[in-house]
Design a protein around this nucleic acid. Structure first.
Lengths: 146, 146
DNA sequence: CTCGATACGTCAACCATCTTGACATGGTAG
DNA sequence: CTACCATGTCAAGATGGTTGACGTATCGAG
């Protein structure tokens, strides 16, 4: 009985940690984005285009797991604000290849940089071994039921 | 230079893990809640009342870090649906003490149970040591800049 | 060349969640 | 009595998402 409730208490702690850590993790980029009139949706788009330059709209939809209608409003903002550029694929001109402009790269770097500093502070206080364990756990958590 | 880009790549991986792990972690409760016409907001309320029975509306607002207007719509749903009960504090009758009803406890247990099983599966595959390291990292992440 | 499939864009209606701001009610405490 | 406190509520708006339907340009197979 005691074991059961201890186990449950540990798991409840873990649930709370997921909630609070995620909230803290997204707080600073959110503040930065607000200054440009952008939101978290724009950040995710910038992030994935930065990580995979030249990806198609379809590929981006797949990564974000949202509908194209949900994607288009923020994507259009980013295109109009010259943070993102699109040009047709050379072979199949239906496909729009998305890339960050220089302005987009700078913004993305600032946003991602804030999160990197946050994580770096955390990891450097915890040690390399802890970092590896954390990643393994997070990877397992990402992969369960997809 | 190589070190810098490796470091950045590791941190980028960590950023993605936060995003994907959180998404996977909330997916199943979201599906359950949808069957009752409830959302993630209701889940967080149920969770915190379950964890701290008898807390006041103000304390709940503090934990969730939202405005009272944002809280009230879902809280009212939970009160009307008899998942949550409120009764005035004995000494200061302005304060409403919130508790889960039996129905509320059952729902909360099912939701939280799904997340616990998810986490347990992850932790049991990673080992107790990894679990401790994960928690330390997450705690540090929660606490930075508050 | 035609035709079906593909990649993308867009209009409309709707929902959930959250915000700011203003105001109301009842209870407490000096 | 009065000021403050805990709570509730109305209103308007932003954001980010959904489903459904339709339009357009392009590609590839026959």
């Amino acid at each position: 009985m005691v074991d059961v409730s201890r186990r449950e208490a540990r798991l409840r702690d873990a649930i709370e940690l997921m909630y609070f850590a995620y909230r803290a993790f997204t707080a600073e980029p959110d503040r930065m984005l607000a200054r440009y009139g952008l939101g978290r949706a724009h950040h995710r788009i910038l992030y994935f285009i930065g990580r995979h330059p030249g990806l198609s709209v379809n590929a981006l939809l797949g990564e974000l797991a949202v509908t194209k209608q949900a994607l288009h409003a923020p994507l259009r903002t980013l295109l109009e604000g010259q943070w993102v550029a699109a040009r047709a694929d050379a072979r199949d001109r239906r496909i729009r290849r998305l890339q960050l402009t220089d302005t987009g790269k700078r913004l993305e770097a600032r946003l991602t940089g804030a999160q990197m500093r946050h994580l770096e502070g955390v990891f450097s206080a915890s040690g390399a071994q802890a970092q590896g364990a954390w990643k393994a756990v997070m990877r397992a958590m990402s992969e369960r039921r997809r």
